[in-house]
Design a protein around this nucleic acid. Structure first.
Lengths: 143, 143
DNA sequence: TTTTATAGTTATCATATGATAATTATTTAG
DNA sequence: CTAAATAATTATCATATGATAACTATAAAA
């Protein structure tokens, strides 16, 4: 097994995943949300409610900057903040109704994009794809 | 086959690919190169020589901004520019010796990171991984 | 209880990035 | 040949992002 060849294949693969991701979110209406703010929304959507600190950890941003960007998202009416009852230093962030609708729209858009790519495949093929996702996730892209 | 479940798996997969990519290039010394400039270098490295326009197309940047950033990369001594003999409007960009060495170092770093993840796997497992890469590349992440 | 650590805020600065208009040089189309 | 169209440059502006210092409030440790 030529590791060099496999590496090139990885590199190519990673590039195409990035491009596909870009194509997926492209076209979804993100009116007033910057790239970093979108990453935050994505993380909050999946993990809510979350503390400011964990958002910062996840997207590699300092607490002051995280605080600033969350503040902007709240001003846009996309996020809400609740003080943690157990530890009142902590602020729990979750999507507002409007933010939830925004993310639902985006996930729906991504879903239809994906549907366009794999919609016509047989169940058997889909099983193969699922297994391939699992394999690479576990063996290579584990975090 | 539940498409909803598959979608969640995709979403998770894409996230972990992004995180892994981040971890891969992290630690590689990129002294004086901004993220956008790094993307340019990466593209030039695999496709050189390339025109300014094609760089801009690839990384979704306007020609004026592409021109500005390439200029910076040339000032850092990482790129070189040659006028195309056939069409003298075109400027062909390629890595300088120094730029080539930089990218060699980074690719080497990524290779060793990858090695750390798959180095102990059997040849059989590696074959499976290769097939999984091919499958997903062709069926899902084709561009 | 005093000290120390944690979670977050606010303010400020520097730099990176994105958008656009105006210009030059060259090539291609009519 | 003249009139587009293409490739790139330069200049300028606005905004996004990253870094840091100083601060408040709360919780945990001594």
């Amino acid at each position: 097994m030529d590791k060099q060849v496999l590496f090139l294949k990885f590199f190519d693969f990673i590039t195409s995943v990035h491009q596909t991701t870009h194509a997926f979110t492209k076209g979804a209406k993100l009116e007033d949300v910057t790239p970093v703010q979108y990453k935050m929304l994505e993380y909050v959507a999946v993990s809510q409610p979350v503390t400011l600190s964990s958002i910062g950890d996840c997207i590699h941003m300092s607490l002051p900057n995280t605080s600033r960007e969350i503040k902007k998202l709240m001003q846009k009416g996309l996020c809400e903040k609740v003080a943690d009852a157990d530890d009142r230093r902590k602020q729990l962030i979750r999507l507002s109704e409007k933010g939830q609708q925004l993310m639902n729209g985006i996930f729906g858009h991504m879903l239809s994009q994906l549907e366009g790519r794999i919609g016509t495949l047989s169940d058997e093929k889909l099983k193969e794809i699922e297994q391939a996702l699992d394999l690479l996730h576990d063996q290579v892209f584990r975090t």
